[in-house]
């Protein structure tokens, strides 16, 4: 496929891509550590995936197959927009099937289909600093990371337990990477956290507005913070998908009328469609 001749392949100029790749390499070398980078102004707004887009643009080659999801779905408006952007400026093949993709850019979900060593998942990150609600000063949180001074976060989780009987964080649930750095997994549901642990695929995180990149190399330990007597518990609506019947996948709640009617369907549209097709084929 061809790309828009008015722009360099994948929009960014080659020296910017090199700068971003260096940041990525540093991120891979220090799992979970936030690497500052010279984030560029992109033609999409900050907060809409500029970090993920820059990371994807820097790692994309002409032979890659790209999948873009938002909320687990390929057809949400922002995913459509980002996919169209890369079709235009990189001319790469795109897919909605998780297994076919070599690069997956995501917002708020990890696909249900397990990822492989041949794949890279790029997360869009709004706030890379896991401690920002506890300490807004970046100069201070940098020091805390340097000293692995994460007591504040444990105290916060403990306060949740004291108040509610359990940890009340349901998404963007903090994780320890490789036993060293506290990391924001981006606002994925806590349900997805266990998928990050020992994942065969390379995980890259891009925060454009905050100008940070971080990474989790393949087969790296990612542990959700918890306590011995209050182990981590992923949250999932206790139902089966109304379309494919899955009891394992993460579900979205859909309001069907104005009198309390609702149904639950898979948030991962690719997973759900594949299961429906398989079921139909079996019948």
């Amino acid at each position: 496929m061809t790309y828009d001749p008015g722009y360099n392949f994948a929009y960014l100029d080659e020296s910017t891509k090199r700068m971003i790749r260096r940041a990525i390499l540093k991120g891979v070398a220090i799992p979970g550590h936030q690497v500052p980078f010279g984030s560029r102004e992109m033609p999409l707004p900050y907060g809409w995936g500029t970090g993920g887009i820059q990371v994807t643009a820097s790692i994309l080659g002409p032979d890659d197959t790209l999948k873009v999801i938002d909320q687990g779905a390929d057809d949400t408006t922002n995913a459509v927009s980002i996919r169209a952007f890369f079709r235009r400026v990189a001319g790469v093949a795109t897919t909605e099937r998780t297994a076919e993709a070599t690069v997956i850019q995501t917002r708020h979900r990890i696909p249900e289909h397990p990822l492989t060593e041949q794949q890279i998942i790029v997360y869009q990150v709004p706030m890379p600093e896991p401690l920002f609600r506890l300490e807004p000063r970046i100069a201070e949180t940098k020091r805390m990371h340097a000293l692995a001074d994460y007591g504040l976060m444990h105290v916060r989780l403990y306060e949740d337990i004291a108040r509610h009987g359990h940890i009340a964080t349901s998404y963007n649930y903090p994780v320890m990477v490789n036993g060293r750095y506290l990391m924001a997994p981006s606002p994925i549901p806590a349900f997805d956290n266990p998928k990050m642990d020992q994942m065969p695929a390379l995980q890259l995180f891009g925060a454009g507005r905050e100008k940070r990149i971080y990474a989790v190399p393949p087969y790296t330990g990612v542990r959700s913070l918890d306590f011995d007597d209050h182990p981590f518990r992923p949250i999932r609506a206790p139902h089966a998908c109304a379309l494919c019947g899955s009891r394992e996948s993460y579900l979205d709640e859909v309001i069907t009328d104005d009198s309390g009617g609702k149904m639950f369907v898979c948030s991962d549209t690719s997973y759900c469609t594949e299961r429906q097709t398989a079921r139909e084929a079996a019948e």
Partner: peptide, 10 residues
């Protein structure tokens, strides 16, 4: 932008 995944877990 859609936030229904996070909203669902909330």
């Amino acid at each position: 932008l859609p936030h229904y995944v996070d909203f669902q877990s909330e």
